[in-house]
């Protein structure tokens, strides 16, 4: 197995802070901590190349740096990317994490190591396996064997690593599927017995706490307001031209309602697979009330109805996708001078 190792200017022996602007340099074979890692992995894997990059250079030119590293990956074609360990060096940790994210985007695994309070962990924990280290390089003696152990296990298990505690990486805050020994119903009864007896038990899903935003100040008047319609009810032009998924949506749609006073069976339908679609397919105004908003526009109750509506399917769609859609839609509404939005859900 061929490993590409990413390290900073300090561990690449280019110098300290004064060399932090060192641009990306590709070297054959291991450098600095890579030497010990290579030795520990002898017979299993080999560091074929090392990237040395200054911490300031990376963080101040992230886009360029990522592009450069991508080119190197395309050229070197590693099987695994290793970064760091970064200990508690913030810029280094962020760079290692970002390299891990790039690797994930390219379908490559990445193993790194850092201190849990390094901002690189929180920012990028979902896209790399991160070994926990202490907060200073004095921990190198332990960090390298720990990373080598994880890499060896990764190779042995053909990339199918077990859970964080057993393998020795920090939790990635990901929900990972696995087959349990007992079926769900039996585990539920075991948990019931434990809870009844006041014994310790571990929930399989810790319930989340959702974030909050402060309420936005009210509009002074509706008369000049431009109102937009947004829905998670899956209303789309007939035929679902962008093929929005019936569940677990990967995209949202943006459609014109210019000149449309009413949604009809001939013009619109729902793409949503999570509710009885018969009523919405007959008259999509029951999910996206274009008809009455057009009336209110004509009567001058509102300034105008925004001529585009935004739609996705809220059925089994992950919060991460929803957040992304929401941010993009909000930006588009702001750019279009929309004053307020009505969001309908099914």
């Amino acid at each position: 197995m061929r490993i590409l190792h990413y390290i900073n200017q300090f561990f690449g022996q280019k110098g300290g802070e004064e060399a932090a602007n060192h641009p990306i340099e590709l070297v054959e074979g291991p450098v600095g901590p890579g030497g010990a890692l290579n030795a520990a992995l002898a017979g299993k894997a080999e560091i074929s190349h090392t990237i040395i990059c200054g911490d300031s250079y990376f963080n101040e030119n992230e886009e360029v740096a990522v592009m450069g590293i991508k080119e190197i990956i395309d050229q070197v074609k590693p099987d695994l990317i290793v970064a760091g360990p970064a200990f508690n060096a913030g810029r280094y940790g962020v760079a290692c994490g970002r390299v891990g994210k790039l690797a994930a985007e390219l379908g490559l695994p990445c193993i790194t190591g850092m201190y849990p309070e390094n901002p690189g962990y929180d920012l990028y924990k979902q896209t790399a396996y991160m070994v926990e280290t202490k907060n200073s390089a004095a921990d190198m003696r332990k960090a390298i064997p720990n990373m080598a152990k994880l890499i060896a296990s990764f190779i042995e298990k053909d990339g199918k690593l077990g859970m964080p505690a057993e393998e020795g990486y920090m939790p990635r805050n990901l929900r990972i599927n696995m087959f349990a020994e007992k079926r769900g119903a039996a585990r539920a009864v075991d948990m019931l017995i434990a809870k009844l007896g006041g014994e310790e038990f571990t929930t399989e899903y810790p319930m989340p706490v959702f974030d909050r935003v402060a309420p936005f100040k009210a509009l002074a008047s509706l008369k000049d307001a431009k109102i937009a319609l947004v829905t998670s009810g899956g209303v789309v032009p007939k035929g679902n031209p962008d093929h929005i998924e019936s569940s677990s949506a990967q995209k949202y749609g943006e459609y014109s309602i210019e000149g449309i006073d009413d949604l009809t069976e001939a013009s619109h339908e729902t793409a949503h697979g999570g509710y009885d679609p018969v009523k919405c397919n007959e008259n999509s105004d029951v999910v996206l009330p274009v008809d009455v908003l057009r009336d209110l526009e004509k009567e001058g109750v509102i300034g105008s109805l925004h001529n585009m509506f935004y739609t996705t399917v809220g059925n089994g769609t992950s919060v991460s996708n929803s957040k992304k859609f929401g941010a993009e839609i909000a930006q588009k509404l702001l750019d279009a001078g929309v004053s307020a939005a009505i969001l309908t859900s099914t």
Binding site: Q126, N173, L174, R175, I176, N177, G184, R187, A188, M191, L192, K195, F201, T203, E204, Y205, P206, M207, P208, V209, F210, S248, G316, T317, S318, V319, S320, N321
Partner: peptide, 24 residues
């Protein structure tokens, strides 16, 4: 759970602190 393709999201549409014993 519906936690996203990579398991990166929270999994349920609703939540309660009283739900301390959950089988997934």
């Amino acid at each position: 759970e519906y936690a996203g393709n990579q398991g990166e999201s929270q999994s349920l549409a609703d939540s309660t602190p009283k739900g301390d014993a959950v089988v997934s």
